[in-house]
Nucleic acid binder design. Structure first.
Length: 271
DNA sequence: ATGCCTTCGCCTCGAAGA
C-alpha cells in the first residue's frame, strides 16, 4: 500500500517530447493520433511550414492541448503544444536577429516546480564551408550565449528540438562515410558539446539504448527500411530535470506510417 | 551519380532538406 494520493498515483507522468513534422499541414493527422496514443505532456514541433494565421489551433485544442507557435511560409516554423498552460512565451533569440522562425520558449508547471522549455529548429547548414554553414555556426554561438543566461534565470530548463547535429559516431549509421560532413563536422559537434557544457544532459543517453538508434532517416534509398539514419533530434535537460528523468525513447513506429515525416519523435519522461 | 524522396511555391520544375 502507498500513502500517495490516488490522483497522483494515477496521473500520467510528465513527459517532454520533440518532433520535426516536416509540414504540420500534411502531418496534423499523425500528430493528433500520436497525442492520443502517447499522451505527452508537452511537444516541441519543428518545420511546421505554416504562417501563424494557418496554424491548426482549433484541432489541437480539441485534442486537449494548448498551443504557442511562430511560423512562416514554406520553411522553418516552430511550436509548443502542451496539456498544461504555457506562460511567458518568447519567440526567437533576443541576441540574434533572425527572420527565420527557429526558436520558441515557454514555461509550464512541472512535477517539482516550473519548467522552462526551449523548442529549437537548428539550421541544417547544407554543406560544410557554405554560407548556410557559416550561418549555422553563428546561430549556434548565439544560442549558446543566450542560453547561458536563460539557464541562470531558469535552472529547470529543457532544450528540445531538431539539432541537425549527430553528436557522436554512434549516432550515425555510417560514421566513415559521414566523417567531416554536414551534421557530423567537428565544429558542429563542438557546438553541441558547448551546449552540454552549460550544464545540460542528453536525456536519451541517460539510459541503455539499442545500437544504431536514430531519429531521422532519408526518404530516399529505403533509408528507414535499411535503418540508414542519424540521431539528430534531442531532448537536453538541465541537472535538476535530468535527476528526475526516468526514461527516454525514440518513437520509431511513427516513421512506418503512411506518408510519414522523415523524423521520429523523441520523448523523455520525468518522475 | 549533378540521381534516389518529399515539401512548397510556382505554375509541372527548382530549391531545400539532411
Amino acid at each position: 500500500m502507498s500513502d500517495t494520493p490516488a490522483t497522483a498515483a494515477t496521473a500520467t507522468p510528465f513527459s517532454i517530447a520533440t518532433w520535426n513534422v516536416n509540414s504540420l499541414k500534411v502531418r496534423l493527422p499523425h500528430l493528433l493520433e500520436w497525442l492520443a496514443e502517447a499522451s505527452p505532456t508537452l511537444v516541441c514541433l519543428q518545420e511546421t511550414k505554416l504562417e501563424d494565421h494557418a496554424f491548426p489551433t482549433a484541432e489541437i485544442k480539441a485534442a486537449g492541448y494548448q498551443v504557442a507557435f511562430s511560423g512562416q511560409k514554406t520553411y522553418n516554423g516552430v511550436a509548443i503544444v502542451s496539456r498544461l498552460p504555457l506562460t511567458d512565451v518568447v519567440m526567437g533569440n533576443p541576441r540574434f536577429d533572425d527572420p527565420q522562425k527557429r526558436l520558441i520558449s515557454a514555461t509550464v508547471a512541472g512535477p517539482d516546480g516550473d519548467v522552462r522549455v526551449v523548442g529549437a529548429y537548428f539550421p541544417n547548414g547544407q554543406e560544410v564551408g557554405s554560407d548556410k554553414y557559416a550561418y549555422k555556426l553563428q546561430w549556434l554561438a548565439a544560442l549558446h550565449d543566450w542560453l547561458a543566461g536563460e539557464l541562470a534565470a531558469h535552472p529547470r530548463l529543457a532544450l528540445c528540438g531538431d539539432y541537425n547535429i549527430a553528436p557522436a559516431d554512434e549516432d550515425v549509421h555510417d560514421p566513415a562515410a559521414w566523417a567531416g560532413q554536414i551534421l557530423c563536422s567537428e565544429p558542429e559537434r563542438q557546438a553541441f558539446r558547448d551546449l552540454v557544457g552549460l550544464g545540460l544532459v542528453d536525456a536519451y543517453r541517460l539510459f541503455p539504448q539499442a545500437e544504431r538508434s536514430f531519429s531521422w532517416w532519408d526518404y530516399r534509398n529505403l533509408g528507414f527500411q535499411k535503418n540508414l539514419g542519424l540521431r539528430i533530434d534531442h531532448v537536453l535537460l538541465s541537472a535538476p530535470l535530468a535527476e528526475r528523468c526516468t526514461a527516454a525513447r525514440i518513437e520509431r513506429h511513427l516513421r512506418k506510417k503512411e506518408r510519414p515525416s522523415d523524423h521520429a519523435p523523441v520523448i523523455a519522461t520525468l518522475s
